[in-house]
């Protein structure tokens, strides 16, 4: 691969590799190899489970850990309360799972050097649109199911805003329909692109650092040092992006659910 030629391939970090000789696992002809991507899903799941389990002490006066878990559930609860209203409470489990799963995936994917030195490379599975796409389709499916369940065919009135002139209705309907159908794509792509862009940027900068150092002390000073400083800054930015993208995903999902719950 590229790394063997002494160069850093910024895309290599997104490559999926089967682990533990599972490359040929199949169900009904579909490959279900346990890949590095699946491994990090498992790690995110276990980490999230440990995090939430630590907050299950159910004490009247919460400790720090319980307080942290409760502030996350309270945060999601408030988010749904603000965007959907009282009916939003029943979506707390889903939105919480979505938000925390994406958040843990994003943050775990950022874990830098110490693990890499041990030969374990963090893998950010939210930088794959197969993954974000499935999550987006899940959210979209919930919106559709809830919308048609609650409002039957009246759900289509979502595409006709109040006060639309009669002549304009077909046109507006088509525009609203397209903007509605585009939602799962924008939802999934946003997360995928944001995560991928950040990781590519970090990787490119790190290749600057390495190449600069290899080219000699002068280049090291001119190129590597500023690149390294920039990397530190961008790492901080990426942590912020990890949180923001998880939040945006949860927020948009709750907004879409609001459409389904309350129409307009």
């Amino acid at each position: 691969m590229a790394a063997e030629q002494g160069k850093v391939d910024p895309m290599h970090q997104f490559a999926i590799e089967p682990l533990f000789g599972s490359a040929h696992w199949e169900i009904a002809g579909y490959n279900i190899a346990f890949t590095n991507s699946a491994l990090w899903m498992a790690i995110a799941t276990v980490a999230l489970w440990i995090f939430v389990a630590g907050g299950m002490k159910r004490e009247l006066v919460p400790g720090r850990w319980q307080m942290a878990v409760e502030s996350f559930t309270g945060f999601i609860d408030d988010l749904l309360e603000a965007n959907v209203g009282k009916a939003g409470r029943k979506y707390v489990p889903y939105i919480f799972s979505l938000f925390m799963f994406i958040l843990f995936a994003n943050l775990l994917g950022l874990i830098p050097l110490p693990l890499a030195l041990a030969g374990v490379h963090p893998f950010t599975f939210t930088s794959h649109f197969t993954v974000t796409g499935v999550l987006a389709i899940l959210s979209f499916a919930i919106v559709l199911v809830v919308g048609f369940w609650k409002h039957k065919l009246h759900f289509f009135s979502l595409f006709v805003p109040h006060g639309t002139p009669l002549v304009m209705i077909p046109l507006i309907f088509m525009i609203e329909l397209v903007s509605f159908m585009i939602r799962p794509f924008s939802l999934g792509l946003r997360l995928f692109v944001a995560m991928m862009a950040g990781h590519v940027l970090l990787e490119v900068l790190s290749s600057f650092v390495i190449d600069g150092l290899n080219a000699g002390a002068t280049f090291g000073l001119i190129v590597s040092l500023p690149s390294f400083l920039l990397m530190i800054g961008i790492c901080a930015l990426e942590i912020l992006v990890a949180g923001i993208q998880a939040y945006v995903f949860a927020l948009l999902t709750s907004l879409y659910i609001n459409d389904a719950e309350n129409l307009h």
Partner: peptide
């Protein structure tokens, strides 16, 4: 297929 499968497994567990 493996991505979707394992995502559904783990996200299903999370949910």
């Amino acid at each position: 297929s493996s991505q979707v499968f394992w995502l559904l497994v783990f996200f299903g567990f999370v949910f």
